[in-house]
């Protein structure tokens, strides 16, 4: 109990002295995580789409070759960035790019560190998302594609209008996962000098040795960020699902649809508007 009180007062002292620095760290962490997740999802989307372009035997040879090549390149990208630690990738890119380009490309100064961090976390996220997007597209019932084809939609229209919106909805949980992982794992970017939340902790305890109280602040800080993120993500998912009930539209309200057609089921149209509750969608 007494220990807890000491811990509490130490944390309060730390917060008093370094609060703005912790908060600046939180800010950098969130910006990096959000930006990299967004860019990573775009990379994943592009890779996933490229990977699922249908390739028929009767297509011309150059097209088939190109598709094959794209698939190989995406495969290599995914395997390399999924299969190595992000910290190492950071070092590799931050120091390696200037090395191989004889310093014509280098990440200099504060903005350089930002650029390198966003780049690294993005391509890392992209490697994970590429597979999620591919799976998301493949999981959509082929009937959806056929329905779209049957009314004359092109491949691009089918993708953007029908398949991707559904695939995106299905992979929202994975996108959320990636955001939460990124909030935590951007901490390894201290290795190239990025001052996110965890780097602030290292700097602060470097001067006062209050390791444990500062770590406690970090724990609370990270947990708060991830909890808020998952709460917001749930909200986004609910928003994407739309209402679980719908209003019947009175036939009279359909001013456009003036027709003399008498359908046998016409009575139904005269019923008052009613709501219909539906069973909750199954967990994925």
């Amino acid at each position: 109990m007494e220990r807890l009180i000491t811990l509490g007062s130490d944390m309060a002292r730390l917060w008093e002295a370094y609060g703005p620095r912790y908060l600046a760290g939180v800010q950098n962490t969130l910006i990096l995580a959000l930006a990299a997740t967004a860019i990573g999802c775009l990379i994943g989307l592009v890779c996933g789409i490229l990977n699922t372009i249908p390739c028929a035997k009767q297509d011309p040879l150059p097209k088939r070759f190109l598709l094959k090549l794209i698939r190989v390149v995406v495969r290599v990208y995914v395997e390399v960035f999924r299969g190595t630690p992000m910290m190492l990738q950071a070092v590799f890119i931050y120091y390696g790019l200037p090395y191989f380009t004889y310093n014509s490309v280098q990440f200099s100064g504060y903005s350089g560190i930002w650029a390198a961090s966003i780049l690294i976390v993005s391509i890392n996220t992209g490697a994970y998302m590429a597979e999620s997007v591919r799976g998301g597209i493949l999981s959509i019932d082929p009937g959806q594609t056929e329905g779209a084809r049957a009314i004359g939609m092109t491949h691009v229209q089918t993708m953007t209008g029908v398949i991707l919106p559904q695939a995106l909805r299905n992979i929202m949980p994975q996108i959320g996962n990636n955001l939460i992982i990124n909030i935590k794992d951007t901490s390894v970017m201290f290795i190239i000098g990025f001052t996110e939340f965890f780097a602030q902790h290292r700097n602060i305890v470097g001067v006062n040795n209050l390791y444990f109280p500062s770590a406690a602040i970090e724990m609370i800080g990270y947990l708060t960020m991830t909890l808020i993120a998952s709460f917001l993500l749930r909200g986004v998912e609910r928003l994407m699902d739309g209402a679980s009930d719908y209003q019947l539209v009175q036939a009279d309200a359909l001013t456009m649809a003036a027709g003399t057609y008498r359908h046998p089921g016409k009575k139904r149209a005269r019923q008052p508007a009613w709501n219909r509750n539906l069973q909750p969608r199954g967990e994925r």
């Binding site: 719908y246 019947l248 027709g259 359908h263 139904r268 149209a269």
Partner: peptide, 9 residues
């Protein structure tokens, strides 16, 4: 939709 009796939906 009116023709197939689904306009209210």
């Amino acid at each position: 939709l009116e023709q197939v009796g689904m306009a209210p939906y």
